[in-house]
Computed example of a mutant assay.
Amino acid sequence: MSRVPSLGAVLPQAEIRPSDPAAVLAFVREVERLGFDHLLAFEHVLGADSRARPDWDGYYDHTVPFLEPMALFAFLAQVPRLEFVTDILVAPQRQTALLAKQAATVDVLTGGRLRLGLGIGWNEVEYVGLGVPFRTRARRFEEQVPLLRRLLTEDGVDHAGEFDVIDRAGIRPLPARGVPLWIGCGDAPSALDRVGRLADGWIPHPNLGDGEKVEAGWRAVREAAERAGRDPDTLGLQGAVPYRHGAETVVDRLGRWIDLGATHVGLNTLEAGLAWPDAHLDVIRDVMATWQEALTPMAGRS
C-alpha cells in the first residue's frame, strides 16, 4: 500500500524581490499553517556576472538573489513545526568542519528539524571564488559525507584524509539525533552509487522528471544500497512537483511520485510567472487544498 508522503514547498528565492525579512517570515508561516511538513531552500553563494560572459548558459547568474540557507534556517527557527531542507547545498566548496558546525547549530536551534541535502554542484565560478579546485569536487564529496556524519554524531573525531584533517576534535553542541544527510544528483551511475552507499535519501535532479529516468535512478540507488549492505527501505526519496498548469495537473504529478515510493514531495512555484509573495501563496493554498482532497482517502487507509 502506498504511503502518504511528507508534503513540502520550495521557498521561491529567485523571486524574492526585494528581500524583505518580514515577507519571508510571513510566507513561511503561511506554508506551515496550510499544513505543509517541510520547506526546501536552494543554494548559491556566487552568481557569475553574465555581463562579462556573453556565452554564459548556467541556470542562474549574478542578478538572481539567494539567501544563504543556514543563516535563513536559523532566522526561521521561530516557525515551530516545519522541517528545513537544503535542496541542495554544495558541500565540496565549503569547509567540512565549518559546515558540520553550522548544521549542528541550526539543528539544535530548530529542535531537530534540519535535513541536509548535499551535492557537488555545477558552477565552477563559485568554486573558484571559494578557493576550491572544481575538478576535485567528487573525490572531496566522497570523503566529506562520512566525515560530516561522524562530526555530527561523535564526541570526538580523529581523521586524516586527502582533503580534511581533524586532529582529535569535536563539536558542541551536538544534535540530539544527528542530522539526516541526503544527496541530490542526476542519474550518472557513479552519483547514484554514491547515494546508495552514503546517503539517507535521494533528491533527484529536476531534469530527470517523474517518469522512467527517475524510476531507473531510484532502482539503481536501492541496488547500490543493497550492495553496500544497507537496507534500501530505510532510504528516502524527495519528489519535486513544479507548478505549471493548474492544481489538477499538480495532483497528477503527486500521484506519480507516490507510485514511485516517494517519502517526501515538494511543490516548486519558481519560474511560473508568479509575483512574490501573494501570487505564490495563492497557488500554494490552491494546490494544498487539492492535494489534501486527493490524499484523504489514502490517509484513511493508513
Rank of each mutant, 00 (worst) to 15 (best):
R168D: 15
V145D: 12
G112M: 04
V221D: 02
F163C: 12
V108Y: 13
G161F: 00
E271P: 07
D57F: 09
A188Y: 01
L274H: 02
G121W: 10
I258N: 06
P80S: 01
I166L: 15
D20W: 09
P180K: 02
F134L: 06
L118M: 14
G58I: 03
R219W: 05
L72P: 15
S6H: 12
Y243M: 04
P297Q: 05
G239I: 01
K101T: 04
L67W: 04
E293P: 01
V28H: 07
R194I: 02
D252R: 15
L67R: 04
T269P: 15
P175S: 12
R230P: 12
M1K: 12
D233S: 15
R140L: 03
P232I: 05
G111M: 02
P80I: 00
R29I: 00
G239A: 09
V165I: 09
L67A: 11
D259G: 09
Q144L: 09
D233G: 15
H264W: 14
Q78V: 15
Q93L: 14
A279L: 04
D20P: 00
W218V: 11
G186M: 00
N123F: 04
E126M: 02
W122L: 00
P189I: 00
H159T: 03
A9C: 15
A71V: 07
T86Y: 09
V108C: 13
A91M: 00
L235Y: 11
R149I: 08
W56E: 05
V157I: 00
A289E: 15
V179M: 07
R194T: 08
R194P: 07
R301V: 12
T153S: 14
D155C: 00
M70T: 04
R29Y: 11
F27C: 13
P206M: 08
M1W: 07
R149Q: 08
G131Y: 07
T234R: 11
V85A: 10
D49Y: 05
V10H: 10
G178S: 08
E293T: 12
G217V: 01
L7V: 08
Y243S: 05
Y60P: 08
V214C: 08
Q238W: 12
D49Q: 02
P18F: 03
L295F: 04
T269G: 09
D259L: 11
P21A: 01
S190G: 10
R115I: 02
A41Q: 05
A71M: 13
A77V: 03
M288C: 13
H44C: 01
A74Y: 02
G196V: 06
I258Q: 12
D233L: 11
R137W: 12
F42V: 10
G239V: 00
L7Y: 07
W56N: 08
F75R: 11
D210P: 03
A220W: 01
Y59M: 15
V85L: 14
Q102I: 01
P80Q: 11
W56F: 13
G112R: 02
Q292S: 10
D193V: 06
K101V: 01
D164P: 07
L260M: 08
R94T: 03
D155L: 03
Q144D: 15
D286R: 13
A228M: 12
L281T: 02
R140P: 05
A225P: 14
S2T: 14
